[in-house]
């Protein structure tokens, strides 16, 4: 865990966000409800409500032994639960991120094996969306809006090019899933190096200025 926390601190340095971590307060919990087949943070709500520590300036990270290869974790962003009408006290207790231990540095996971899943999930905690997000403009009854549409605000960040997620764990530097071109000729490549994408850990290396 110390190594995982070091990775988080290091990769967040460019954002000027800092973390205060006291390893002596590391908490261990054994509970059958932490079984690894869960793939939605909502399923963890009763556990989070029991274990949450601190206030909204406290980031609670829950590492659990997930058995799903394509689910690295989940995290609450600053507004979703408020929009759903969850009462403030419960909302605070449910705050935090669950992260699969399968994604920590040097794990055997084929593409989430450098500890960057935690960096991605914490990005959501700070309010970042995926660059391939639909921008929340989906009208009722409508599904799958085209994230490539000019009118779609995708992640509301100007310097993360519009993109589709692509296959999990890919690192195709030439992918231009929205088929966009600058000045008519230069491809606008997908932001595969962005921590908020679903690309491989080896591929990811930054947040953009707009995200920071």
């Amino acid at each position: 865990m110390a190594e995982q926390v070091s990775i988080i601190k290091e990769l967040y340095k460019p954002t000027k966000l800092t973390f205060n971590y006291d390893e002596s307060k590391l908490q261990y919990h054994v509970d059958p409800r932490w079984q690894g087949s869960k793939t939605n943070i909502k399923e963890f709500n009763p556990l989070l409500e029991e274990l949450h520590v601190g206030n909204y300036r406290t980031l609670n990270l829950y590492f659990y032994n997930n058995t799903h290869q394509e689910y690295g974790g989940g995290c609450r962003n600053p507004w979703t639960e408020a929009q759903k009408g969850v009462d403030p006290q419960t909302r605070l207790k449910q705050d935090g991120c669950v992260i699969s231990t399968y994604t920590i540095n040097k794990s055997s996971h084929p593409f989430m094996n450098r500890g960057k899943t935690a960096v991605h999930e914490i990005g959501h905690w700070f309010g970042l969306l995926h660059p391939f997000e639909d921008g929340g403009i989906v009208p009722p009854g409508y599904r799958d809006p085209d994230t490539c549409m000019a009118s779609n605000p995708d992640d509301y960040v100007d310097d993360t090019p519009k993109t589709y997620p692509g296959p999990p764990g890919h690192c195709d530097k030439t992918s231009n899933t929205c088929n966009k071109f600058k000045e008519g000729t230069s491809p606008v490549y997908d932001p595969i190096d962005n921590y908020m994408m679903y690309t491989s850990d080896d591929c990811q290396s930054r947040f953009t200025d707009g995200q920071m």
């Binding site: 865990m1 995982q4 926390v5 988080i8 000027k16 966000l17 800092t18 973390f19 205060n20 971590y21 307060k25 590391l26 908490q27 261990y28 919990h29 054994v30 509970d31 059958p32 409800r33 932490w34 079984q35 690894g36 556990l47 274990l51 520590v53 601190g54 300036r57 406290t58 980031l59 609670n60 990270l61 829950y62 590492f63 659990y64 032994n65 231990t101």
Partner: peptide, 20 residues
């Protein structure tokens, strides 16, 4: 921004090694 306090919880469903 102010420093974020980080609390890490390590969990497991059982005390068996194969359960993490």
């Amino acid at each position: 921004p102010p420093t974020v306090d980080l609390v890490v919880h390590v969990t497991a469903p059982t005390t068996r090694r194969e359960d993490g």
